[in-house]
């Protein structure tokens, strides 16, 4: 559901840049966010297709850079990338862990424009 609001903000930023840098058309946009930030790429894509109509970003391709969830485990001393965070270390089952990556907020990294 929040994808709608995030896309609205993406389009506002694109619009600002379109005015400042005088481009008419956006070919692609690279976005990044953490795997655990509850952002669904499919919903983002869908919301974008609907809301980008009649803007410079209409038909632009979205590329997602999804940053991994990373924990540090105090039991085995490792840093591990995970798909799902369950509060434990998948390697040693240790419960003394710290989440160190994966909740990064949505960013626009770059655009390809004409």
């Amino acid at each position: 559901m929040h994808e709608l609001y995030l896309v609205e903000s993406v389009l506002n930023i694109v619009q600002d840049y379109a005015v400042k840098q005088e481009f008419k058309k956006v070919n692609s946009i690279v976005l990044s966010f953490g795997r655990l930030s509850c952002i669904d790429p499919k919903s983002l894509q869908f919301a974008f297709e609907v809301q980008a109509k009649e803007t410079p970003a209409e038909n632009a391709a979205l590329q997602f850079k999804i940053l991994p969830a990373v924990i540090h485990c105090f039991s085995c001393g490792r840093d591990l990338e995970l798909d799902i965070y369950e509060g434990t270390c998948p390697r040693c089952k240790g419960e003394e862990v710290m989440l160190v990556g994966g909740t990064e907020e949505l960013q626009i990294i770059e655009m390809d424009v004409d």
Binding site: L6, S9, F23, E105, L106, Q107, I108, E110, M111, V113
Partner: peptide
């Protein structure tokens, strides 16, 4: 043309 943005969407 590439435009570098690097901006939080909710800025």
């Amino acid at each position: 043309m590439k435009v570098t943005v690097v901006k939080n969407v909710l800025a």
